[in-house]
Write a protein that binds this DNA or RNA. Structure first.
Lengths: 167, 167
DNA sequence: TTAAACTTTCAAAAATAATTGAAACATATT
DNA sequence: AATATGTTTCAATTATTTTTGAAAGTTTAA
């Protein structure tokens, strides 16, 4: 397999994977493209490589920057903007998990809390509902915290190691 | 908030959360409904509660059973089929993560392996591509294995505890 | 074997999500 | 101030995904 083919295959695969996890295909493709580019890429080039419109590129680049995983870059003497992706994978994972937690998990937890704290009266049906949603709340909270801890750990272990070695 | 309202809110929320993670809304809603039901529910009742067609109910129930998180149940003296959801949350998480790994992560890993093993020639661009996709392969593999270990641990810790106590 | 009760399938329709493209907006250059 | 270069926005279009509903299929019972 030659380079161009491999690159294309990677971009397509990353796009498909994104779709399956609720991220729009183009957004994932742009991200893929930037991840494997050794230098910043202009909007023109992104449009060209992925065969997408200016509007599409613009909106998805904005979204990626909102997620904090793509950055704008300015080149000396150039008017136009260039884009790079976060290439450190621990950092990437940390940012994605933080955003998804903030945007999706936390709001869901809030609702779970609400519905699990109705007064159960006496029917077995209602008791089961309260019991199950309470368990779910605890479980999701636990999982969410665990992700947090893991990313925290990943972000710090090198720093910690350095400090340790300096002692 | 009264029971019916809480139940509806929970089903809607779970459905929305599913959508955001690439699971179709109805599938997530059916699952939600079954999770908080203290007894097996018939297709009729699911259709009624979620206001969906028979075909929709049938297809999504099949999908949920394929994921291994919903079971068919037969009641003595009844012709029709009833459905229940896996209610143990550790087990639920284990099954979901196993399926997503099998269906999505493993195939993606295969492609990552392929594209990361092209011969890099000498251009910096190609070298970066190979380097980055190799890192990504390692990272995804590590994450996938970690999930495996975690679910394995969760499934066994009680068993292990019991064995430990018996010694 | 026929009918009744129930489920599955799948082409067509509907709903939802993504994409385009051109006008409006910004900013730098002459 | 006018023009050139580049970006954003968003209503309209297009593509994708989901849902419907009716016909075909299956199983049980009379």
């Amino acid at each position: 397999m030659e380079f161009k083919e491999a690159k294309n295959k990677f971009v397509q695969t990353w796009g498909a994977l994104g779709s399956q996890w609720g991220i729009n295909k183009t957004m994932a493709q742009i991200h893929a493209l930037l991840m494997v580019s050794n230098e910043a890429v202009s909007m023109e080039d992104i449009m060209e490589e992925l065969q997408i419109s200016r509007g599409n590129a613009s909106m998805n680049l904005r979204a990626l920057m909102d997620w904090g995983i793509v950055y704008k870059e300015f080149k000396a003497g150039e008017r136009k903007e260039f884009f790079t992706a976060e290439k450190d994978l621990d950092e990437l994972a940390a940012k994605i998990s933080r955003e998804r937690s903030k945007r999706e998990i936390k709001p869901a937890l809030k609702i779970l809390k609400e519905v699990s704290t109705i007064e159960a009266k006496d029917s077995a049906e209602e008791k089961h509902f309260v019991d199950q949603t309470t368990k779910l709340y605890d479980f999701v909270l636990k999982a969410d915290n665990m992700l947090d801890k893991m990313t925290e750990f990943n972000e710090n272990w090198l720093g910690k190691l350095v400090i340790k070695m300096m002692k």
